[in-house]
Amino acid sequence: MARRRTANFGTPVGYWMMGMNLTRMMVETQMVIAMRLMGMQGAWSVAPNENVRMVSEKMTAFAQSMMATQRAVISGKSPDQVLGAAMRPLSRKTASNHRRLGRAGPK
């Protein structure tokens, strides 16, 4: 009788690192939201097209995330690797927005 393969669900360190990456992304996201809201109130230096950029960049980032997730699932990656693939495009966008808006500073 053929031996059944057990699913590879990653390592404890992989899950811990994924949790840390999720936490970093959540903090960056909240900071970006705060800076954009302050920009809408006139208290933070933002580009005039920031509101349009805020909406349009999400479509691209989520489409890239969806495609990366599908590729990871189809190739048989572990759950932490699938989540990592899904997060990567979103995390890159939140990190770049955080850097860009943070450099602009308050008015």
Rank of each mutant, 00 (worst) to 15 (best):
M1H: 12
A2H: 10
A2F: 07
R5C: 14
R5G: 15
T6F: 11
T6A: 15
N8Q: 13
N8Y: 08
G10V: 00
T11C: 00
T11D: 03
P12E: 10
P12M: 03
V13F: 02
Y15G: 08
W16V: 14
M17V: 13
M17S: 08
G19Y: 09
N21L: 14
L22M: 09
L22T: 06
R24D: 13
R24F: 12
R24G: 07
M25K: 02
M26H: 14
V27T: 06
V27R: 13
V27S: 06
E28R: 10
T29C: 12
Q30S: 08
Q30F: 08
Q30W: 10
M31I: 14
V32K: 06
I33R: 15
I33D: 09
I33Y: 04
R36K: 11
R36H: 05
L37Q: 09
M38E: 13
G39D: 04
M40V: 07
M40F: 11
Q41F: 10
G42I: 03
G42M: 05
A43M: 10
A43Y: 07
W44I: 00
W44N: 01
W44E: 06
W44K: 06
S45K: 08
S45N: 12
S45Q: 08
V46T: 01
A47G: 07
P48G: 07
P48I: 04
N49W: 13
N51H: 05
N51S: 05
V52L: 04
R53W: 12
R53N: 11
M54T: 15
M54C: 09
M54H: 09
M54D: 10
V55K: 02
E57R: 14
K58I: 13
T60C: 02
T60E: 05
T60I: 14
A61P: 02
A61V: 13
F62P: 00
F62H: 10
A63R: 04
A63G: 02
A63S: 05
A63Y: 11
A63V: 14
Q64E: 08
Q64D: 12
S65H: 01
M66K: 10
M66Q: 09
M67K: 09
M67V: 15
A68W: 03
T69G: 10
R71F: 03
R71L: 11
R71W: 00
A72Y: 01
V73Y: 01
V73H: 01
I74R: 07
G76D: 12
G76Q: 04
K77E: 14
K77L: 09
S78H: 02
P79D: 12
P79N: 02
D80T: 02
Q81T: 06
Q81G: 02
V82E: 00
L83M: 07
G84W: 01
A85F: 00
A85K: 00
A86M: 09
M87C: 01
M87S: 03
M87Q: 12
P89A: 03
L90D: 02
S91V: 01
R92K: 13
K93D: 09
K93E: 03
T94M: 13
T94A: 12
T94F: 05
T94P: 08
A95G: 07
S96V: 15
N97L: 07
N97R: 08
H98R: 15
H98C: 13
R99A: 15
R100G: 06
R100S: 09
G102H: 14
G102N: 15
G102Y: 15
G102Q: 15
G102T: 07
R103V: 15
A104D: 14
G105Q: 11
P106L: 05
